[in-house]
């Protein structure tokens, strides 16, 4: 019978002990533990979120890098192409210039040759003239003994010279 009847003393002490330890434990244990657990959970959540964000960012960066690489490749090709073009242009130009130069040189050479030819011609003319003079002198010196013929002849020569210079130079 006694077993089923609550006793006031034990009831009272149970309430007192339970509530006392509840109040102490709440202050000393539960609040710090629960706070620590909550903080840790929040931290884990925050870190997971941060990790996800970092991954996202990483992916973005990788994408960007790839894009940049692609762009760089394109740029390289472009530059190469341009360089090739430039090279070709330069070559062309150089060739052209060379050709022009060659032409010019040829012209100059031709001119010089022409000049030399001219001067040679002049000299030859001179020579011819001198030789002609000489010959003429020789002839004249023999002919001039005869004054009359001599004069006429000189005159004839002169007129001939004036009238037909081509014949003299040619």
């Amino acid at each position: 019978m006694e077993i089923i009847l609550p006793k006031f003393g034990l009831f009272f002490w149970t309430v007192v002990i339970f509530l006392t330890f509840f109040l102490i434990l709440r202050k000393v244990a539960w609040k710090p533990i629960l706070r620590a657990l909550q903080e840790r959970e929040q931290e884990i959540e925050a870190r997971l979120q941060a990790a996800a964000e970092a991954q996202k960012k990483m992916e973005q960066i990788t994408q960007q890098n790839e894009k940049m690489l692609q762009e760089a490749l394109l740029a390289k090709e472009k530059i190469l192409k341009e360089a090739q073009e430039l090279k070709a242009q330069i070559e062309n130009q150089a060739r052209q210039e060379a050709r022009l130069l060659a032409e010019k040189m040829r012209k100059e050479t031709l001119q010089e040759v022409e000049q030399i030819k001219k001067s040679l011609k002049d000299e030859i003319k001179k020579e011819v003239v001198e030789m002609s003079f000489y010959v003429a002198e020789k002839i004249l010196s023999r002919e001039l003994r005869n004054k009359k013929t001599h004069d006429s002849y000189v005159e004839a020569l002169i007129s001939d010279l004036q009238l037909n210079p081509k014949r003299v130079t040619g």
Binding site: T20, F21, I24, L25, A29, W30, P32, A36, L37
Partner: peptide
Amino acid sequence: GILLLIIFSKIAKEYQ
């Protein structure tokens, strides 16, 4: 009660 107090205050400290 004392056992609870010892164990859980120790745990609370461990969390710190």
